[in-house]
Write a protein that binds this DNA or RNA. Structure first.
Lengths: 330, 330
DNA sequence: TTGTAGGCGTTATCAC
DNA sequence: GTGATAACGCCTACAA
């Protein structure tokens, strides 16, 4: 592989001049710039990123932490991020945290060793102040997650509104007995708190009380959905509608409900979250909350690159619109 | 960030000794090893990968090229690869080729600059001899794709058998009029040739002739499936069964078929490929060909690391089993 | 406008 | 067993 020295030899100029050309610095005569450029082309020279990193330069690599890539929400998000980054000449290094604190830390350490210029975090497992201690080593951006501190730029979706829209829609359809199923907890402060607030807000407006028996927490998969549906079928007092935190779970519910002879939406209305491809594949097609994943990824890269270029940038946050997609399951 | 020099100062030993300890070299006394190890722990020292790379060491990073991450087959594959690599202390750098030759080349160039030790390619866009020219810069492994040359180790699935099993199953169910839908071409040599061979083999055994009107090439998405089903419905002479190259396409077909008032599998049997999560979500549940994605990823990493440790390793290839999963759509 | 020289953090070579 | 020292490829004071 050709190095800068090869270019120096071929061009007959100095390392400095060559380096200046490579980095688009001023103070190089037109003629010399030409000569260097030609030599570079002739040799097929590409600067060695390791040397640059060692020298303390930018890596043009952005890290992305996601819980798991097989979750379509995140694979679509990663796709958007990767495409946007590539356009700007950045590489993307992806890590799955699997919701493991240690893996998250291991990945953040890449900042310390200048392996990545910045990290986009789509979920934070460790406490925010631990994460914050890595800020001095590189840029950190929160995407689709947040902390109640103005320490990181955040690109968010309005989850309160998302849940609110969904639940209000169920109420408008005449439902009063509404179950709630979340991937987080049913706390005011825990994971998924925003959606919980949206849920509560819609119920409060309609003066409906929460039935604790109809609250299901920490549910993520198709299997989870099936299991819950079995439980619901056995209840004496059944809900007439269910708001779920994921299309996957909603999908499982629909399948199991049909298995059990229930008609959707007549016996039970179901609403998902994400608007994943399966939402349109399910029968009946799933009413759900669409999250603008592509925008989320693009905006994240845009802001990240802005941070990289100007590390002292003011910390701003962005909230992207979220919308209700009504199909057949409600 | 602590460097080796910090460890040197704290331990009172030389760089050489410290480096030896870090790299598990012999010729360090037990006592000194202890001292160094303690200093490392105290400082939270981590070797700087950029410096190592520059020095010509391994990067402990493996690149993976996939066509697109939003295809569940590849997101599951990437997941398996990432998990397996992480266990071995390797990072994974993912690139989507989007089936673009240039992007593939751009990624292969990471080998030249020692950004990655090796690359796992899940699809090759450029000619194999171009790819081969990168072999001198690092290890290249073909995963789920192959060339008819013994130049790269390959981890493959037996696609001939996969297609054969599916089509034979349709024939056993009494079908004679079988349509075929592929993500590749219907050539003897082009993309998807193996599945074509499997398809032909099964037909030949039953002395069934191919109807060219029932061959659909370059089909990938749910939308493609819907479109094809519309075409089929309009045909005077309709097939009674369809073998598809993807669960996505099969899913689209099922949806559209139902829309058009067809009953599956009675009016039309449909078989997918991949056994993606939607296969179980579809109604009726989809008969499909299961590809052992996790094994594919694990084996790929296993062989890649073997290659990295022993670059002169004999080039071996592996073929993983593939199986028919019978559900309700046939 | 151009060139020289030093250092980023690491490992390998060689001498002790 | 141990320790100087050079080298990997690059960028940037500083000097000219």
């Amino acid at each position: 592989m050709a190095t800068i020295s090869d270019v120096v030899k071929l061009s007959g100029l100095s390392k400095t001049t060559v380096s200046r050309v490579i980095n688009n610095h001023p103070y190089v005569s037109k003629e010399n710039r030409e000569i260097v450029l030609n030599s570079i082309k002739e040799l097929g020279y590409v600067p060695n990123p390791s040397a640059r990193r060692l020298r303390g330069q930018l890596t043009t690599t952005i890290g992305v932490i996601i819980p798991r890539i097989v979750n379509p929400f995140f694979s679509y998000l990663v796709n958007a991020i990767e495409q946007a980054a590539f356009k700007q000449g950045y590489q993307v290094l992806i890590s799955q945290s699997n919701e493991d604190k240690n893996k998250e830390i291991a990945f953040l350490n890449l900042l310390k060793t200048k392996q990545v210029d910045g990290i986009i975090m789509t979920s934070i497992e460790n406490d925010w102040d631990i994460i914050q201690s890595y800020k001095e080593y590189g840029s950190i951006l929160l995407c689709n997650d947040y902390v109640n501190q103005d320490v990181f730029p955040m690109i968010r979706l309005d989850q309160v509104k998302g849940a609110y829209l969904g639940v209000r829609h169920l109420i408008e359809r005449g439902h009063q007995k509404i179950a709630y199923c979340t991937g987080g907890l049913f706390d005011d402060e825990g994971k998924g708190k925003d959606r919980n607030h949206g849920f509560q807000k819609a119920l409060n407006e309609a003066a409906i009380k929460v039935n604790p028996k109809w609250i299901f927490i920490d549910q993520h998969t198709v299997e989870d959905g099936k299991r819950i549906m079995k439980q619901i079928v056995e209840m004496d007092d059944r809900p007439t509608a269910i708001f779920t935190g994921s299309d996957q779970v909603a999908g499982g519910m629909i399948m199991e409900a049909k298995e059990q002879g229930l008609t959707i939406p007549d016996d039970l209305a179901i609403i998902g979250f994400d608007d994943q491809p399966i939402a349109e594949i399910l029968d009946p097609k799933l009413t759900t909350i669409r999250q603008p994943v592509d925008q989320l990824g693009e905006k994240s890269i845009e802001v990240m690159i802005e941070m990289l270029k100007n590390p002292d940038m003011e910390i701003k946050s962005y909230e992207l619109p979220i919308e209700l997609i009504v199909r057949q399951s409600t």
